[in-house]
Amino acid sequence: MPPTEGGRLDGPRLDGPVPFRARGFAPRDLPVAGAVTLVGLLVLWQLGAWSGVISTSFISDPVAIGQAIWTLARSGELWANLGASLQRLAIGWVVGTLTGLVFGLAVGLFTLARSPGMAVVAALFPIPKIALVPLFIIWFGIGEGSKVITLATGVFFPMVISTVAGIDAVPRTLIRMGQAFNMPWHAIVRKIILPGALPSILSGFRITTSTAIVLLVAAEMVGAEKGIGAFVLAAGNLYDIDNLLAGIVLLSLIGLAISWVLDRLERVLLAWR
């Protein structure tokens, strides 16, 4: 802008305080808002069902689902199915997680294990594990073995990948520091590498628990007398929408409970962040 006569600029005039421009882009957690949203959706759903906007022939209302869960709990059917599912989930997840963790550590720490291990993971990880259920039934029978193996296999590969990624992300300078202080190999692994890889390992837990729930339902639908997956399938076959949705709500509650436990675990183990 060229100056006008007398040396003054001939642009827009400024007259006022400097405006604050750094608003936004800082989302915060509002736990109450989350709970209010869920309750609000349930209320809307219920009102929609009562007013006839939502057909209860195709989707039961929340009160009916609650009543179905209450009836199942009183009859003991809920606990029998929930117990069977939680047992499979726990065994399959623990077996898959522990083996994945050990395999991931080997791949992350040893040259000899790295390339062969990653080649196996790269080849087998993309296979949808649900496709392996019939094969596992042939190998391990229709009983608990095939279901646990299905879960463990599904959990194993993401756990390996999370563990290796976590180890690779540990700053090399910290490992050099440990070596410079003459720390033994096992102490470097225990005190530097494992804690450094922990955030990634805990992320792996989150991924593998949700994978395990998906595979649990799939395995139980293929061949199980008890379990939430078998219960949901049976309810669907009988066109029993209340019980079908009760089963789905239970699966959601299992997921929420696991997520809550993992949140607490992260708060304790990653307090330093």
Partner: peptide, 29 residues
């Protein structure tokens, strides 16, 4: 306890250990 010891450019502290814990690391083994 360690004939040759290092002080690093970035301090190389373990973020999951307290100040005392980081110093202790050099002595624990």
């Amino acid at each position: 306890l360690n004939p040759i010891t290092y002080i690093f450019q970035d301090a190389s502290l373990l973020p999951w250990r307290s100040v005392a814990g980081n110093v202790s690391l050099a002595l624990e083994d």
